[in-house]
Amino acid sequence: MINIHRLSFKWHTQQTIPTLTIPSLVIEPGEHVFLHGPSGCGKSTLLSLLAGINKPSSGSLCVLNTNLAHLSNRKRDAFRSDHIGYIFQNFNLLPYLSPLENVMLGCQFSKSRQQKALQQSSSLEQEAARLLSALGLTTEHHQQSVANLSIGQQQRVAAARAFIGSPELIIADEPTSALDANNRSAFIELLFAQANIAGSTLVFVSHDESLQTLFNRSISLMDITEQAV
């Protein structure tokens, strides 16, 4: 699913020491990976590379057997919209769209995800509603203003948006940091359930190592990176 080989990344070409260097990392399809590390160890940088926002300076970064290092900006944007669902830390939703519209937004920029969503349900709206319900958001919340939802409910909407159109890779960037402990594990269970149904690989990033036990694989970014000394 993800295959990283001798990856290094610099913000500027003049930079002498790379911001991030990963000799090797392999994540198999369907894995639920917990990626942790202290602040500033390069988690955000790695995620921006995985999501195709930034491009590796050297080495290869293959997602779904596509080397993102060789794709143009435009193709990486298209790749992201087709194959990656992204969940932010918090404030994930566009305030002027309803929860349902926020979920549909997940496949508005990708034809292939729209088609996949339409294989599940007869319309995008129905698929969005199905996902919201599956993630525990009752129909009465589907149309109400995003501002009236609790943080936990908002994160479920964000998760539904990441899952619509069954992307192969789900990246969750500290999605539970604003949730309390009960909500946290419930939310992660829901993520697992959906990821299993959709057959998606889940990369879950957090600095909270207590969550680690829930995952079948845990990677410490400190262990896999080559730290500049």
Partner: peptide, 16 residues
């Protein structure tokens, strides 16, 4: 800028 980042995350390109 958050709104722009969210739109980027769902695949919107800068020219979008």
């Amino acid at each position: 800028r958050r709104e722009l980042a969210i739109l980027r995350s769902v695949g919107a390109r800068p020219w979008h």
